[in-house]
Amino acid sequence: MRFLLSIVVNAVALWLTTLILGGVRVEPYADTVVALVVTYVLLGVIWGVVNATIGSLIRLVGFCFYVITLGLIALVVNGFLFWIVAWVSELMGFGLAVDNFWWAIGAAIVMSILTAILGGIAKRLTDRRSSADRSSKER
């Protein structure tokens, strides 16, 4: 359940990011609304996998750079990960198009902020639902 919620949060954050920034756009595999939604969901999956695998490896190896730059290197790393997502989706024949690396860094910043906000809202909603379920079972 948590994994699916993470994919939906990533997809919505990516959709909002493409609305905010002009240098980042999504190209669906077909010209229908369903294809656009499926493309956003697939990009959410790709973002989660890239961030969990490559992102974790880069953070582990580059820990010293994070300490030296007081975490500012994270902007560049997240931009690089965003660019990797665009590259992977392009290889699949659909997906994310980023004009240049600066747009990737900007998109990573915006997406991080939106993911944090949407993730907090989703967590609060699921916590309420689970506490309501527990209290109804206790009666």
Rank of each mutant, 00 (worst) to 15 (best):
A132H: 06
D127T: 02
W47C: 14
L125A: 15
V33F: 15
A116G: 06
G120H: 01
A30F: 05
L81I: 11
M92S: 13
N51V: 08
V34S: 06
R124Q: 09
G55C: 11
D31R: 12
I73F: 14
N100E: 07
L60Y: 14
G62D: 00
S130D: 13
I54H: 06
L75S: 11
V76L: 12
I68E: 04
P28I: 06
F94A: 02
A132W: 03
G23L: 06
G79Y: 02
Y40D: 03
L60T: 12
N51A: 12
V34A: 09
V50L: 11
L125T: 05
N51P: 08
A116M: 03
A132Q: 04
R124I: 10
W103P: 09
R25G: 12
G93Q: 03
E90D: 14
T32Y: 01
G106T: 03
G93C: 06
I109A: 13
L70A: 14
L114A: 00
W102I: 14
L75C: 11
N78L: 05
V85L: 11
F80C: 05
A107W: 03
Y66E: 13
V26R: 07
V50E: 11
G55I: 08
A104Q: 07
L36R: 00
V26Y: 07
S131Y: 12
S131M: 13
V67N: 11
L43A: 08
L96C: 07
G95E: 05
K123G: 15
G106V: 07
G55H: 08
W47K: 12
F80T: 01
V24W: 03
A35E: 04
G48K: 04
E27C: 13
T115A: 15
I113T: 01
V76Q: 03
T53I: 13
E27D: 14
V24A: 07
I121T: 07
V45S: 15
L43I: 10
G71W: 01
V41C: 12
V50D: 12
A104C: 10
A108M: 10
N100Q: 10
A97I: 01
V41N: 08
T32L: 00
A52Y: 09
A107M: 03
S112F: 09
G44W: 02
V24N: 02
T115E: 08
G79P: 07
V41R: 03
D127Y: 01
L42D: 07
W102V: 14
V24Q: 02
A108C: 12
D99G: 07
L57I: 11
D31C: 10
V26P: 11
D127N: 07
V38H: 05
S89N: 04
W103C: 05
T39R: 05
V110A: 06
I105P: 15
E27I: 13
W103Q: 06
G44Y: 01
